[in-house]
């Protein structure tokens, strides 16, 4: 921690806590999450105020149910607190780290609900084994565009249709690559390549823009 020079801390300033930096001071989200990882619930208040809404919105986009989204946001934020000691500032942003947790939780929920639905729909375990998940998917046309900011929409527009659709189905739809392949009617191998190339192209387009 080279930044914390000894002379920067003046003795006559009352400290909220002897062990933690003052979370009320302007601090970057990365610092706040790192301080949370050392057990400061006060720092986590700062993390919460920056990230609760982005986390909730992301969950809402994927599960599309406010109650469920709140549930997932809670799980994700508690997981972020629990794992905060593993977060290492300077090796990726706190924001990405937290959104990754939230996205994973939301996708897990979508898949779990889907499995339960399928289980109710099929009587026998044998029949269940034979059915591939994608066959049972009702194809719901969802307009993913309204979930994208102008900047991101512009970048996604530089992708081929298949690349863009594959990424949207995976990221917002919670589909596995196998399900994406089935929905788009392209082979799995092709799907993997499209997703990978699409992500690289998206990255490059965002960097240029």
């Amino acid at each position: 921690m080279e930044r914390r020079h000894l002379h920067a801390v003046s003795d006559d300033v009352p400290r909220v806590s002897r062990h933690e930096p003052d979370a009320t001071a302007a601090q970057s989200l990365d610092d706040l999450l790192a301080a949370s990882g050392r057990g400061s619930a006060q720092a986590f208040e700062g993390v919460y105020s920056a990230m609760a809404t982005p986390v909730y919105r992301l969950a809402l986009r994927i599960v599309r149910d406010p109650g469920m989204a709140e549930d997932i946001a809670q799980e994700a934020l508690v997981e972020a607190w629990r794992k905060a000691p593993e977060f290492q500032p300077g090796r990726g942003s706190a924001k990405t780290w937290m959104l990754t947790i939230a996205h994973r939780r939301a996708v897990d929920r979508v898949r779990r609900e889907q499995r339960q639905r399928q289980q109710m729909e099929t009587e026998a375990a044998v029949a269940e084994r034979e059915a591939t998940p994608a066959d049972q998917d009702t194809v719901v046309e969802v307009d993913f565009r309204r979930w994208q900011s102008e900047r991101v929409r512009g970048a996604l527009d530089t992708l081929t249709d298949i690349q863009r659709e594959a990424i949207e189905l995976a990221y917002y739809g919670g589909c596995t690559q196998t399900e994406v392949a089935a929905q788009l009617g392209v082979p799995l191998g092709t799907t993997k390549t499209r997703i990978r190339d699409g992500m690289k192209r998206l990255r490059d387009a965002l960097e240029e823009g």
Binding site: S93, K95, R145, R151, V152, Y171, Y172
Partner: peptide
């Protein structure tokens, strides 16, 4: 990935 998570 951050961009995909950006609100619409």
């Amino acid at each position: 990935l951050d961009a995909l998570a950006e609100p619409g």
